[in-house]
Simulated assay, not measured.
Amino acid sequence: MAGDTNCVLVVEDDGLIRLSLVEELEDAGLSVFEASTADEALQIIEEHPQIEVIFTDIDMPGSMDGLKMATLVRQSRPDMQILLTSGYLKVSKNDLPWKIPFISKPYEVDRVVSHIRSMTGQRGEGICLGPSFGS
């Protein structure tokens, strides 16, 4: 199914959560890239312009958190769709940059998939040559 799906980048520093989420998103028919830090995510976004959506945790180690990364991405790629999550922060919609959607942890993967598909306006009909295709 990969190769004709929407491209998503999951940014999550907790390896077990990231592994589980990536697997579940792939099972839902999405092509998924993954990163453990915002710095790694920015590099992947630069190397893979086919990525349409970023699903990122806010609380991450490294030089920036998910909010700062979202701000940087919106400045360079205003077309990029972003979905934020956190298990520690409760963020008001009015406090999010550009009214970026927020889903608190724990979340249901079906809800995440639904959000991603509504953000792209597609139901898995886009083209994505994801990481499993050597991109």
Rank of each mutant, 00 (worst) to 15 (best):
T56D: 05
V109P: 02
A41K: 02
I100W: 02
I45H: 03
L96Q: 00
E34V: 03
V10H: 04
I100S: 01
S36D: 13
T120L: 11
M60F: 06
G121F: 15
D27R: 11
E47N: 07
I54T: 11
D57C: 06
L84G: 01
L25K: 10
R74H: 10
F55T: 07
V11E: 03
D95P: 01
V8Q: 10
S114Q: 14
V109K: 04
M60N: 06
D4V: 04
P61G: 08
Y88T: 11
D14G: 04
S76L: 08
L96S: 00
L16P: 02
E34Y: 08
Y88R: 07
P61W: 01
V10S: 12
V91M: 00
V113Q: 03
L16T: 11
L129A: 02
P131R: 01
D110N: 14
G62M: 08
V32D: 04
R111A: 09
Q75C: 08
S114C: 05
D39E: 15
V10L: 14
V112H: 05
Q75T: 12
P61T: 07
L16R: 10
I127C: 15
C7R: 06
P49A: 04
E52R: 12
I54R: 04
F33P: 02
P61V: 11
V53K: 05
K105V: 09
V22L: 08
Q50G: 02
A38T: 13
L9K: 14
D57F: 07
I103S: 04
P61M: 10
L25P: 10
T85E: 02
D14C: 06
F133L: 14
L25R: 08
M60T: 07
L96W: 03
P61I: 12
E26W: 12
A28V: 12
W98N: 09
P97R: 12
E108Y: 15
S114T: 11
Q75M: 13
D57P: 10
L42E: 07
D13P: 06
I103R: 05
D39Y: 03
P97N: 07
Y107W: 14
I100G: 00
T120M: 11
I54S: 09
P78E: 04
I127P: 12
T71V: 11
R117P: 01
G130T: 12
I58K: 00
A70G: 08
R77W: 09
S63H: 11
R18Y: 06
D4W: 08
W98S: 08
S86M: 07
S114W: 15
V73Y: 03
I17H: 13
W98V: 03
I54W: 03
F102C: 00
S76R: 09
V113H: 02
G134K: 13
M1V: 09
E24H: 12
D57N: 11
L30P: 07
L89C: 03
E34T: 10
G130C: 13
E24Q: 15
C7I: 02
L83C: 13
T56K: 04
E52S: 14
G134P: 15
G126N: 15
M80G: 04
A70E: 02
I127W: 14
F33C: 03
F55L: 08
D27S: 13
D27Y: 06
Q75V: 12
N94G: 07
L84I: 08
I51A: 12
I58C: 02
P131K: 00
P106I: 13
F102D: 00
